[in-house]
Design a binder for these strands. Structure first.
Lengths: 194, 194
DNA sequence: GTGCTATATGAACAAGCGTTCAGAACCAAG
DNA sequence: CTTGGTTCTGAACGCTTGTTCATATAGCAC
């Protein structure tokens, strides 16, 4: 026997990415087999290799897509005041990460499963994102908008704090997303000394 | 053949734990084989089963030890002022986590590889730790020492921020541990509105 | 020095892994 | 209705996995 339900190249590809994303996020890259992914898609394992050269590339593509989307979705900070830029960044980060918890999880947890070259590529993208925040913090420092000593440390602190929202916040809970954004923005603003 | 170098029960046990800790932190639980651990210890894989019933227990023991040590090393907060308690917590968290990066990494990243019962046990310990901080924040709220709105959110925010130090701080870098502690303490104090 | 026990070996087990590939089934175009 | 090319199956590949166990040794107590 061969294909039982017809030709589906346009639909199988995305399904594989979705299935891999969910399974990697839930069980971890190393713990998920190609057969599990295939089974989730409703296909045999061999068929996956029409869409990806190997398992590692599947992971890398997911991470790269996520980081690229993150960078291009980030509002451009030009021509705004430091406080507005920082507030915009805080609200953006929380909302964007909240919308794709699986991709965020993978992008943070599976770095060690990338080949050295792939790791360097993802780390570069992450660095670009962090630099955007760092530039905002430096701009606010220069203009005297706030008093934070070390912009690099503050960058790490703010990003860690904001990314942490994903570990506990659920939209069905007692707080709305915008309430969470409000409270984090207040904490960030105070933390940088504004 | 059998043992080639003698009887080592008192030394093989700890060596297994150390090897497992390092390998799990570096490559992830699922990506590390019992044979790799055994090889690191200088022993055959079968010998590991004199010290652990299975691979899962090895992971759980490492995580449980870490969380237990964390809880018992945490300074007792009684009879101090809110600000002192919070500062003590911030400095303690940074220092303690800095001393054992592998255990911290595992305790955060390998939760999904625990059986449901083991997961519940670790989560409970983590909850106890978070409650200690939350109680400090509530005490400060009640005494008017600071103005943070939601103690639960602030707890998550502070812990995420502090734990993030481990992702970038290295003692060989440009900053000393106490400088980092100082700056984070200042950011935390400001963030809670003190 | 003899015997006991704890500790280790090394082979074996069934199961699962990522990946390849010949051939079958399907769809679209002529 | 045939042809051509894309998509999938199912079996196979060599290898690794966690775990077990009979067997052998090392070191301690006597």
């Amino acid at each position: 026997m061969a294909r039982t339900t017809g030709s589906h190249s346009g639909i199988t590809g995305p399904k594989i990415r979705t299935a891999a994303l969910e399974l990697f996020a839930k069980h971890g890259f190393a713990a998920v087999s190609m057969r599990q992914i295939a089974s989730e898609v409703g296909v045999q394992a061999g068929a996956l290799y029409n869409y990806t050269p190997d398992k590692q590339s599947l992971l890398f593509d997911l991470m790269q897509s996520h980081m690229t989307e993150l960078l291009s979705a980030l509002p451009n900070e030009d021509a705004a005041q430091p406080f507005e830029m920082l507030e915009q960044f805080v609200r953006f980060h929380i909302a964007f990460h909240h919308e794709r918890p699986e991709a965020v999880f993978i992008a943070y947890m599976e770095l060690r499963n990338l080949s050295p070259e792939n790791f360097a590529l993802i780390e570069d993208l992450r660095g670009q994102y962090e630099n955007r925040l760092q530039n905002i913090l430096i701009a606010g420092q220069a203009s005297g908008a706030w008093t934070v000593k070390d912009a690099k440390i503050a960058t790490f602190a703010v990003i860690a704090m904001l990314t942490g929202v994903n570990t506990w916040f659920r939209s069905e809970g007692r707080l709305s997303l915008s309430e969470v954004q409000d409270q984090y923005w207040q904490m960030v603003r105070s933390a940088v000394g504004g």
